[in-house]
């Protein structure tokens, strides 16, 4: 990273993958080739900008062990994401990072993992999934459950990865949607109501949740009731950020800055912080 943490570097858009197939088609994955290699850990994030429009914060969404490029999964929501969605392969995005703490992958070693994700929440956890499924790392972690939720069958992202993930040793993927539709033979309903039906060892499991704030709260409570201690339930927070450097004051929760002390927090840490997220 350059000495000046505000300066972005150019990253060429190599490929754009349309993720959701619902009418708005508002989630795309951008495969980028930065001018210099960006080395990151699962859970870290990047500041990404379109010059003249502005900068926005995105979690890395790709395998951290693949060094020749990064992927960002971006939903069209505001001004910057709108501008990004207007770009094509071959165009340039400007990025700076990595920022944030990332997941404590060493602490996770020896544990089973249970991922509960909603919609776009799978994106910031994908680097961790790829990391633990890597052939050099797989043996360090136990059984892996994934409860992937989406509004409708068309709103799942990274569907092309599921078979590859499921083919790894002791990996179980469950999908659920909010309301039943014809032809859907998997789960229906919110994950917090479903995870109790899935076999896992609460005493030895790390719970990982990512999704809207309400989903984090409900599933953390569900995990807790199923025997996972709060210091073994992890989530990654989304906050408005400007600098990513703990200076601009936007992502301040209590004395912590989500950009420096987070975005990954254990529920134990969050319980000790003012509930302003």
């Amino acid at each position: 990273m350059s000495m000046n943490p505000y300066l972005p570097i150019p990253a060429r858009i190599e490929e754009i993958i349309q993720e959701t197939t619902s009418d708005s088609q508002d989630v795309k994955t951008y495969r980028l080739k930065p001018k210099t290699v960006i080395d990151f850990m699962p859970g870290q994030f990047v500041e990404c900008s379109v010059p003249g429009v502005g900068e926005s914060t995105f979690g890395f969404a790709s395998n951290p062990l693949v060094k020749d490029g990064i992927e960002l999964t971006i939903k069209r929501t505001g001004r910057v994401t709108q501008a990004i969605h207007m770009l094509s392969a071959g165009d340039t995005l400007w990025i700076r990072g990595p920022f944030g703490n990332g997941f404590p992958v060493d602490f996770f070693e020896g544990h089973d993992l249970f991922f509960v994700v909603g919609g776009l929440g799978l994106a910031p956890l994908r680097p961790l999934i790829e990391y633990v499924l890597d052939k050099n790392n797989r043996d360090k972690y136990g059984k892996i459950n994934m409860m992937i939720a989406a509004r409708t069958p068309k709103d799942f992202i990274f569907t092309y990865d599921y078979d590859r993930w499921a083919s790894c040793r002791d990996v179980h993927i469950y999908q659920t949607i909010d309301a039943a539709v014809p032809g859907w033979d998997k789960f229906v309903g919110f994950p917090n109501n479903l995870i109790k039906d899935i076999e896992f060892d609460g005493q030895n499991t790390i719970g990982l949740i990512c999704g809207p704030p309400i989903m984090i709260k409900l599933n953390a409570a569900a995990f807790k009731s199923l025997g996972i201690a709060t210091d073994r339930i992890y989530t990654t927070l989304e906050m408005r950020m400007t600098c990513g450097l703990g200076k601009c004051g936007k992502c301040n929760i209590g004395h912590r800055y989500v950009c420096l002390d987070g975005p990954v927090f254990s529920m134990k840490e969050l319980d000790e912080m003012p509930g302003e997220y």
Binding site: Y6, S49, P51, G52, V53, G54, E55, T242, C243, K247, C248, G249, K250
Partner: peptide
Amino acid sequence: CHCFDIRDAD
């Protein structure tokens, strides 16, 4: 007070 925003001008 030092909170700030970053904006682009085109």
